[in-house]
Write a protein that binds this DNA or RNA. Structure first.
Lengths: 259, 259
DNA sequence: TCGCTTATTTCGTAAAGCGAAACGCGGCCC
DNA sequence: GGGCCGCGTTTCGCTTTACGAAATAAGCGA
């Protein structure tokens, strides 16, 4: 049987996952004994796993029929993953093209808990000081990524991002709500956001939102380069980023994330 | 914390599911410490869960970056569930209409392991002897459901269902390959399958396949009634079933199941 | 090269997962 | 209508084995 050859395998978890896989792959809701017979595990054990997984919301326990099926929590997770997975895999090629074309660092990020979370990063030159790492979080107000996404959010949602005062990351960082609103407004008008040394000294960023089927900014791509080098290619970069974003949008599944 | 109020909750499983939910809801692949900090669990514990879930295929462990993300097994399960969930929920209303219109038992089934698996059943009159139960399996050759699905399978797949001899369920059950092929061929021509007392004495069934976006028979609906009562309404029933099947197909997501 | 951070391994302890068996309940059949 | 059977739930005692602190190793940036 699925005896964990892995010495770090936690048996209850491994066995519960067998139950999970069985239930999820059936077209109908299952009974306790059905799982027991299918997997050859003791009744008590399966019973406990079914209870635990139901309590976690991954399964739904139909009390009337005493049957277990896949739960809403599972479907939420699956949908979230499907979207992000699709985002990353379709973005992949575009990021490569961008980094190849400009030889500057390219970032892919999403908005989570009102922060910018880096999802993929391509550094053109590793000699350069770290900008960010995958999974790291930066503020919305100091990044072109954040402002680009904010620019295409419904206005009620933007208001949620407005603070009386913002953290000053560099001497150029905007710190008041008024300026933030102006930057966001400008990004919306131009179709891309810009940030010049507001997040990190000497580094300029151009960010463009990636919209999902409903026009909601699910993510953003940005190009970041030293101030001087960026100056010469702002227009070209903005256009390339917008093209990339459009293509990524087109390849995304038509479903949306519940905000 | 998420202390299992449920006395039957298995803690390792419950905690592993927290890890699961966290990883699946992130847009980026995560590191061990990231999970530890987010969930406030001991490092060793999380490490073991990540290992276990990766071994189960639900997570993918990127050895190079030492990051964990959602694995292919999870996506397979999610897709299977999405299809079946959609099938059942869109079929729901149609089944109700059918049972209301004919006052006879209506079945929804899928094909699994070359058998007919009942997924939903609406009995018009409970006095009647049980026909089948959800999750029960009947042979392909003796049911209208099975023959309806077989009729729209690619011919190579139909061959997999052909046996030199079939189990004789009633004295009317077809038992040879030749007759099976003939029935399937006829069902394909007519667009619905029929079975008269071949699965259960005195009961006649009409089955119609439900095709997915690619024209593959993902399931089937059937109406079953005592021979005499069915005789009077064959044409009307076949048409109603076909209409229902068409509507269910239309509401299905455009993705397919890998056969 | 050093020093930090992060992943892996070890190990002793006690918690808690396990599963046989008993119980209770409902439905089916006689 | 009564009894039987199948199924889900509960109990209980026994270790098994999950646990987590701490030590170790491996990376990686400075």
């Amino acid at each position: 049987m699925a005896k964990g050859s892995d010495p770090y395998s936690v048996l209850p978890v491994a066995k519960a996952m067998q139950v999970f896989a069985y239930v999820a792959s059936q077209a109908h809701d299952v009974t306790l004994t059905e799982v027991v017979q299918a997997l050859g595990m003791p009744k008590t054990t399966v019973f406990r796993y079914l209870q635990t997984l139901s309590a976690a919301g991954l399964f739904a326990h139909d009390i009337v029929q005493d049957r277990y099926g896949v739960g809403e929590k599972f479907r939420e997770l699956a949908q979230t993953d499907a979207i992000y997975h699709s985002l990353r895999s379709t973005a992949q090629g575009e990021l490569d093209v961008l980094v190849g074309g400009f030889r500057e660092t390219v970032n892919l990020a999403v908005l989570a808990d009102d922060e910018v979370v880096y999802v993929d990063i391509r550094e053109a030159t590793r000699s350069q000081r770290f900008q960010a790492r995958i999974g790291h979080r930066h503020p919305v107000h100091s990044t072109s990524l954040g402002k680009a996404m904010a620019a295409f959010l419904p206005s009620e949602t933007v208001e949620r991002l407005v603070r009386p005062e913002y953290e000053q990351r560099t001497y150029r960082t905007l710190t008041d709500a008024r300026t933030f609103r102006r930057h966001v407004e400008e990004a919306r008008r131009r179709g891309f956001a810009m940030e010049t040394g507001e997040n990190e000294d000497g580094v300029t960023c151009i960010g463009v939102p990636i919209l999902d089927g409903k026009g909601y900014p699910i993510a953003a791509v940005s190009l970041s380069a030293p101030d001087n080098r960026m100056k010469a290619m702002v227009d070209r970069a903005a256009e390339a980023l917008q093209d990339a974003a459009r293509r990524i949008t087109a390849a995304l599944p038509p479903i949306s994330l519940n905000v």
